[in-house]
Computed example of a mutant assay.
Amino acid sequence: MTDSVEFPPTTFAALAAPAVDRAFVSGIRAPGPKGRDVVMAHGGAAAGFLIDLRNPLAAGRRLSRDELAALNRYRDPAAFHEGLAASVAHGLLTEAPDGTVAATVPGHAFLRDLFALHREALTAQWGGQEARIDRLNGALARTLAAAAQTGGIAWRAQAPPYETDQTPPAVRLLNRLSTLRWHRADAHAAAWQAAGLTADEMVALPPGPARDQIEQETNARNAAPFAALSAAERVTMLADLAALP
């Protein structure tokens, strides 16, 4: 297959997006009801607010208000500020006078439990996939390195993915997939902004030529990092993503 099929980066970007999303969503949901239990044990919705921010917060990075806004482009602003305030009030986040936020000791405790839960769940869900996971991690390492040249504000807030020497390969893969998705998110935002739309207008845009044009522009903007891979490596990545249970 890899010898007979070639995908240019832009075409591959269109094909990779749903494959990356499928693998990431499957992985992030792997804990099932246990995930809800961990969230509730640490404060419910106040803890849940940290999940999308887990990579930078676990690494000890501070997030600015502009970065937080970019990471929550499609959320109702009132709901976003309410969620942020609840996490601060619950003691999971601390807010500096300049508006930047970081995880507190209780916040880090929640993130440790969350990563441990994913380690357990993914060991079961992706067991027996070690060679495939290792190939994906290698390809993603190069893709993420290249993405640093073209990523926008949400990408810069999320990159690099959180990992240590003790991070299991399956959790490493989940975190790298998560970070890669933010490069496309920035590409998508740049595309609808270039079309003169707001976030609300983009959400409300019906299927049709205008939306198709924005998706095509998104793929073109999101293609650059995949040029770090050979044509054969792109096909292998798609096959490996599709084969993950």
Score class of each variant (00 low, 15 high):
Q149F: 01
N137V: 07
D165M: 12
L53S: 02
I214S: 08
P56K: 06
T2C: 06
A204Y: 01
A121R: 00
D37L: 06
E95A: 14
G151E: 12
E95N: 06
G32D: 13
N72T: 15
R112V: 10
Q158N: 15
P8G: 14
L122M: 04
Q149L: 14
Q129M: 09
L241A: 04
I51P: 02
E217Y: 03
T11D: 14
M40I: 11
F12Y: 12
G128K: 14
T218Q: 05
T11I: 13
G83Y: 04
M202L: 07
T143S: 08
R54P: 07
R61V: 12
D186I: 00
L140T: 09
A45L: 08
E163N: 11
H108D: 08
Q149Y: 07
L197D: 06
L241G: 06
G60A: 11
H108L: 08
L229Y: 05
R29W: 13
R142Y: 02
P160G: 13
R135D: 10
G43L: 08
A223L: 04
R221H: 07
D76W: 07
A157S: 14
N175A: 00
A131S: 11
L144P: 05
E215W: 01
N72A: 11
A41Q: 15
A194I: 14
A204H: 09
W182K: 00
T198N: 11
D3P: 07
Q213K: 10
R73I: 07
A141I: 01
Y74E: 08
P209H: 10
S87D: 05
L140G: 03
G107E: 01
A190L: 03
K34T: 01
A199P: 09
A145K: 15
